[in-house]
């Protein structure tokens, strides 16, 4: 099963290798990994997405808990959560496809962030499904390059659960 794991860790060198090492030691692949500082500059938040046997992932999470640099771990898989990812996507923009690309970008609320002689570079934020759907639609026009941030995720604030950001 696919798991989204959130870790709060000490913001110092080597921590990422420790976290990643637990996966490589088991021959597991990490699908995506995102790391950045939190409100507290001494702490980083890692969002990690992986697919694997639930039992082994549970073991890995216990090991995370044992790590001196890991302050807090949460498997968000079973939680109601918000998940987002950003993608930069460079697509061929020929005379006859330009309008179509812009129309799709508009529908998906993607932004054009760079215009080349024969390409557009688009920026899109959304959950994994939305990003994948967007890529599929642009595929026939010729996608030249992509850069994805990987998923970031947060538990929903259930006390005040408005889904205003859902799209």
């Amino acid at each position: 099963m696919r798991h989204t794991i959130s870790l709060f860790v000490d913001n110092e060198s080597g921590v990422l290798s420790r976290v990643a090492g637990l996966f490589s030691a088991r021959g597991f692949n990490i699908e995506s990994l995102n790391v950045a500082e939190t409100l507290d500059p001494d702490t980083s938040r890692i969002t990690l997405v992986t697919t694997g046997d639930d039992f082994i992932i549970e073991q890995v999470i216990k090991r995370f808990n044992n790590m001196v640099n890991v302050i807090w771990v949460d498997d968000l898989t079973e939680e109601t959560r918000v998940e987002r990812e950003m993608i930069l996507l460079r697509v061929e923009a020929k005379e006859k496809t330009r309008a179509e690309i812009l129309r799709m970008a508009d529908i998906f609320r993607a932004k054009v962030v760079d215009v080349g002689l024969e390409t557009y570079t688009l920026e899109l934020t959304g959950d994994k499904e939305k990003v994948n759907a967007f890529m599929e639609l642009l595929e026939p026009m010729g996608i030249k390059e992509i850069a994805r941030t990987g998923t970031v995720a947060m538990k929903r604030d259930t006390k005040n659960s408005n889904t205003g950001d859902s799209q």
Binding site: S13, G14, S17, R18, G21, A25, N66, M67, V68, N69
Partner: peptide, 14 residues
């Protein structure tokens, strides 16, 4: 040393 001993220590420090 840190990289080599990471998997066989509980923790290590530079």
């Amino acid at each position: 040393h840190i990289g080599i001993t990471r998997p066989c220590t509980k923790h290590n420090y530079l």
